[in-house]
């Protein structure tokens, strides 16, 4: 669905660009390819790590570790899980919902969802490539800490 939107947009822009200037379009496409090829090595590494990680972790194991009564330790574990894993959202949200019904706590799930989206240990090498080590690491650390604020507030509000 999202893919379709971007393909349509890219096609329309490409067509308009081509009609307006063939040479500029060619330069644009060349830039597009170079930018893509530039991150391809790191991207492939990320994809392999994702495969390895998801094949070992599963929902049952996670819910055992971050249950309602797991307290602070559970919240910490959930934060670490969220930071190091890369699960596509269309898998992550239903999993989180399932974990909630099978006894995970709201704060634990909130910190998991938040770190999952904002913190990326696996993609850190890519981020460093664009932003340098200091900015990339600081952003991830700040997002990690911020996720506990999110968990605290959600724990208060949603209960």
């Amino acid at each position: 669905m999202e893919g379709l939107f971007f393909y349509s947009l890219a096609s329309i822009l490409l067509l308009v660009s081509f009609v307006k200037s063939r040479s500029k379009t060619k330069i644009g496409l060349k830039k597009a390819w170079k930018a893509f090829e530039n991150i391809l090595p790191q991207l492939l590494v990320v994809l392999l790590i994702v495969g390895l990680m998801l094949s070992v972790l599963n929902a049952a194991l996670i819910s055992k570790l971050v249950g309602k009564d797991s307290g602070i330790i559970g919240i910490l574990l959930a934060a670490v899980f969220g930071s190091i894993t890369m699960i596509p959202p269309f898998v992550a949200f239903p999993t989180a919902a399932a974990l909630l019904t099978s006894g995970a706590g709201y704060a634990q799930i909130a910190v998991f969802v938040s770190t999952l989206m904002m913190v990326g240990v696996v993609t850190l090498p890519l981020e460093i490539k664009y932003f340098g080590a200091k900015t990339a690491i600081s952003r991830n650390v700040l997002a990690f800490l911020f996720s506990f604020v999110v968990a605290g507030i959600i724990g208060l509000v949603v209960y």
Partner: peptide, 28 residues
């Protein structure tokens, strides 16, 4: 693990090329 990696790769191939094309055109 290989299956999941291949799946994510397919996803990347599906989503990423138009983004880079749009970026290239934006740049120009």
């Amino acid at each position: 693990a290989f299956g999941i990696s291949a799946n994510s790769f397919k996803e990347v191939l599906f989503l990423v090329p138009p983004i880079f094309v749009i970026l290239g055109l934006l740049d120009v």
